[in-house]
């Protein structure tokens, strides 16, 4: 009896260790900075969406191309994990630290430690709200408020007539920075036009199933919907399915505006199912490596570098669809 369970335990342990070894086999990590290769410690938020994964991939590929030794850490969307990762990067004496803060506040302590250790810090994708801007060298990323604003401005452009326009909003994850900012930007853009009214606003959690479920409920509760504003493409794609299931035509009976410009969204846009997409570009890798090299060499860099982003209508989408990387 004891022998059997012991054997079972050992077998399972061996299996588990092999799995760990398989995953970490690519480790052979070189610590500290020795020689000309720059070591960068990158603390990523997590892998909560396709956007985030594309962002990670871009950083990793650019690092390889630029000859930068990348130490990657995934925080599983927890701030304390990012703080731990940055602290261990300081401990490992990397040349430069880059990270996408999962939340805006609370980084002063660990950034001061990095500053005391003379390791420069670059922010990507999201900003921090520290009063002391000397704690980081530059911030490279999108402006979520501007994204919401562009979406709202397009709608204001499109609805010049004085007919009332009923808008339903499918928000992102409650409490997250992109959701808060995009909502605010959109509301700012449409507030001067009295015909544009948001009649319902719920959270779809940035997912397709969330968007579909919320849209189904909207369709039943509000008989007259003219426009759907979804905080990201996935929610919009879910909304499309709900609209089609209700017997309506997305893009014609109900206009759809989304943010992100992922490939599936662009496909829907070129097919006329979505009407307008504001881009949120995750491919920051090259710009990041560029800035990192400059920063390590002691050169001056601008405090704020905005990612190049644009907007797309149906015609524009058809033109660029084949060249979309993700």
């Amino acid at each position: 009896m004891i022998k059997k369970s012991m054997f079972a335990v050992l077998a399972a342990t061996g299996l588990a260790l092999t799995a760990c070894g398989g995953g970490g086999a690519s480790a052979g990590a070189a610590n500290g900075s020795g020689g000309d290769k720059i070591t960068m410690g990158f603390a990523q938020v997590g892998a909560e969406s396709g956007w985030r994964t594309a962002n990670t991939k871009s950083v990793q590929e650019s690092a390889k191309e630029a000859g930068v030794d990348l130490k990657f850490s995934d925080a599983q969307q927890k701030q304390e994990n990012q703080i731990k990762a940055i602290r261990s990067f300081v401990q490992q004496k990397v040349d430069v630290i880059a990270f996408s803060p999962v939340v805006e506040s609370g980084w002063d302590t660990v950034l001061k430690e990095a500053k005391d250790a003379k390791i420069p810090v670059i922010l990507t994708d999201r900003a921090v709200d520290s009063k002391d801007t000397s704690l980081y060298k530059t911030f490279l990323g999108s402006d979520f408020v501007a994204e919401g604003k562009k979406a709202g401005e397009w709608l204001v452009e499109q609805s010049k007539s004085s007919e009332p326009v009923n808008i339903v909003e499918i928000q992102g994850t409650t409490g997250s920075a992109p959701a808060n900012d995009r909502k605010q930007g959109f509301e700012d853009a449409i507030k001067d036009d009295p015909d544009l009214k948001i009649v319902a606003s719920q959270s779809g959690d940035f997912t397709r199933s969330g968007g579909k479920q919320v849209m189904e409920a909207f369709l039943k509760n509000n008989p007259d919907i003219d426009v759907v504003f979804a905080h990201n493409d996935d929610e919009g794609l879910g909304a499309i399915e709900a609209i089609e299931a209700a017997g309506k035509v997305p893009g014609k009976d109900i206009k759809i505006i989304t943010i992100d410009a992922v490939k599936d969204g662009m496909t829907a846009l070129s097919n006329g199912k979505i009407n307008f997409i504001v881009e949120c570009n995750p491919l920051l890798g090259d710009q990041l490596m560029d800035l990192a090299k400059k920063v390590v060499a002691g050169q001056d860099v601008p405090q704020r570098v905005v990612t190049e982003e644009t907007t797309f209508t149906m015609e524009q989408a058809k033109q660029v669809l084949s060249s979309r990387q993700y």
């Binding site: 909560e48 969406s49 396709g50 997912t207 199933s209 879910g238």
Partner: peptide
């Protein structure tokens, strides 16, 4: 059921 409902697999959130 969940993935076929939206004809997509979202490993991050499903």
């Amino acid at each position: 059921m969940i993935s076929s409902n939206v004809t997509a697999a979202d490993a991050n959130n499903a």
